[in-house]
Design a protein around this nucleic acid. Sequence first.
DNA 1: TTATGTGCAAAGCCTTTGCAATAAG
DNA 2: CTTATTGCAAAGGCTTTGCACATAA
Lengths: 146, 146
Amino acid sequence: MMDAKKVTALLRKKGFKVTPQRLAIYNVLCNTKAHPNAEMIFNKLQPYYPTMSLATIYKTIDILKEINLIQIINVGEDSLRYDAVVKSHSHIRCTVCNKVEDIMDFDFTPAIKDVAQRTSYDLSGQQFYFYGVCPECQAKANRKIG
Amino acid sequence: MMDAKKVTALLRKKGFKVTPQRLAIYNVLCNTKAHPNAEMIFNKLQPYYPTMSLATIYKTIDILKEINLIQIINVGEDSLRYDAVVKSHSHIRCTVCNKVEDIMDFDFTPAIKDVAQRTSYDLSGQQFYFYGVCPECQAKANRKIG
DNA sequence: TTATGTGCAAAGCCTTTGCAATAAG
DNA sequence: CTTATTGCAAAGGCTTTGCACATAA
């Protein structure tokens, strides 16, 4: 999933050192669709990097964000989540199990055009978040009522 | 702007007491388009309620949210903002001056239909946030560049 | 009268910062 | 060898909580 050589080259090019911790953190983000927050990344790496601290995760995330390898997701929880998929896409959170899923191939264009025209803002980005109950949690609920 | 009788009745109906602080906080939210955060509300009321604490503002906001008199806006800042306009609408934040404006009459329907169909989620809500530079800040920037 | 609300101070939670020891280049 | 990074602990910022006093009903 993660192209280590590419990441290494990019970090060096931008003047950052390449450390096992940085590669590991980025690797976690590349190999999950769970949109983990800092603590989830921490827990995932704990067995392999038992001395790694949350501070390192936050500092690394700053860098990965700066060189555009990850994006930050704010779904209205207490903590932020991170996504190695940088392409603009929206997210949906299940209000029961709290999982966050991607919604790929959602066409922002009409909305952006409409808003740009109506507000005269020079638009630079947007975040669309949807909330609801995922199919799995719907099924569980039905079973209980059943 | 604020219908005091309506708010009073609603609070009582839901089992909450009606206090000057609660009415004042809701009144501030009804009389601004600035989407203030807790501290902004606090500062606004400071001259009139010099002993009011931030804790009271947060507690009141919980209640106003619970009885659906306000909505919470999370535009990716450190603090949350609050809006007495409960009708679903999207927001745009200027990345220069940080003001948050409403985008009314934005039609969510096509997006919601698309997402509902594609994800099989039972949708309950959505938040659309746009980011860019407002016309005023664009003008200022142009003046500087000259 | 009595249950709820206010306001202060303290605590909580996520995130950031300072700094000495460590590792990358 | 030099400079950036790690990891610990402490601090910061927003929000919540506990509790004694005050107030609404």
